[in-house]
């Protein structure tokens, strides 16, 4: 009974903390503070995933939601500020709020109504709803892996993952075709602490990614988590100024970017020809096929996320060569 009480207190505190951080993140006037609060919010979200028995989601959130999104936002803010100092207009500072406008009053009335309605719907849901968990449990044997989340991601609903890899690629194509962002080369060398830490961390991160990929077959982990850890290693290397050479930025990078989606597409077409269903992996080979799909997906996800962080700065690399 006492552990129940402690659990309830922990969950209530976590919930309140999430709401408070989200409110401060969206309301505090300083954008830099807002981004830091958002990263803290992401870390608390990871804790919430653990409390909800979703360790796979927690790993993805900690690496992507808190880490990579935060890094992307910080770079964007720094570039906004450099635009602001170059031009005369204010890009990185918000205009002063001009009191509450009529639309805002309407919103303040309508939003609580929507929230109450949503809350009422949630509380009226039946307490027991097995969903698809029984279906997954019965077919888990045939999936080739024993972690149900990996089985869903790469076997039962493999087309989700295929489309998701294509969405990632499309986002990168969008960033590239917009010419990316204003290039700004760091002229000063990276601080010694960052440089040393990166040199120590990158091999560990690569090892962690490989471990997460392998362990994903039977425990929390998998291609997404491993890919984002790889991307984090790439971001660290970019931060200390280790830009890849222009020769590597052209064809080799593009090959890695399409490796994951291409492998997925090939397996999708082959399974459609042999098994008469898209991505229906034959049970006797499913384990090996999932490992192949996950390895290529991990490389592509890592490369795409790191390239998204690099953004349009690839153009400057071309000019340097």
């Amino acid at each position: 009974m006492e552990t129940m009480m402690v659990a309830w207190m922990l969950d209530s505190l976590l919930g309140l903390g999430l709401l408070w951080l989200a409110w401060r993140c969206l309301a505090c006037p300083n954008l830099f503070k807002a981004i830091v609060l958002f990263v803290a919010f992401g870390l608390l979200m990871a804790l919430a995933w653990v409390r909800l028995e979703a360790p796979d989601v927690a790993l993805a959130e900690a690496a992507i939601g808190a880490g990579l999104t935060g890094a992307l936002l910080m770079v964007a803010l720094a570039q906004l500020q450099s635009i602001e100092t170059n031009g005369d207009a204010a890009g990185a500072t918000e205009k002063e709020e001009r009191g509450i406008r009529p639309l805002q009053w309407l919103l303040l009335i309508v939003l609580p109504l929507i929230a109450t309605g949503l809350g009422y719907i949630i509380l009226s849901f039946p307490p027991d709803a097995p969903g698809l968990s029984t279906a997954v449990a019965t077919h888990l044997e045939a999936s080739g892996v024993s972690n149900p989340v990996t089985a869903v991601l790469l076997n039962f609903r493999g087309y989700d993952t295929l489309l998701e890899l294509i969405v990632l690629l499309l986002a990168l194509l969008g960033v590239w075709s917009l010419g990316g962002t204003v290039p700004q080369q760091a002229a000063t060398p990276a601080p010694l602490v960052l440089e040393t830490l990166t040199r120590l961390l990158v091999p560990v991160l690569i090892l962690t990614a490989a471990y997460l990929l392998w362990v994903g077959a039977h425990a929390p982990g998998g291609a997404f988590q491993a890919g984002s850890v790889l991307a984090a290693a790439g971001v660290l290397l970019l931060l200390i100024g280790r830009h890849p050479r222009a020769a590597l930025m052209a064809l080799p990078l593009r090959l890695i970017l399409v490796l994951g989606p291409a492998t997925f597409l090939v397996i999708a077409v082959v399974t459609m020809l042999i098994e008469d269903a898209l991505l229906k992996l034959p049970p006797e080979h499913a384990g090996k096929l999932i490992l192949l799909l996950e390895t290529t997906a991990m490389l592509s996800i890592g490369a795409t996320l790191a390239a998204l962080f690099l953004g349009g700065r690839r153009h400057t690399d071309k000019e340097h060569s």
Partner: peptide, 23 residues
């Protein structure tokens, strides 16, 4: 054991969200 299908969808969603944010 919780239902693994929404978990898988959320992992996919997190990755899509970060790419949309970058764009």
């Amino acid at each position: 054991l919780p239902d693994p299908v929404p978990h898988a969808m959320v992992i996919t969603g997190i990755v899509v969200a970060v790419s949309a944010t970058a764009l």
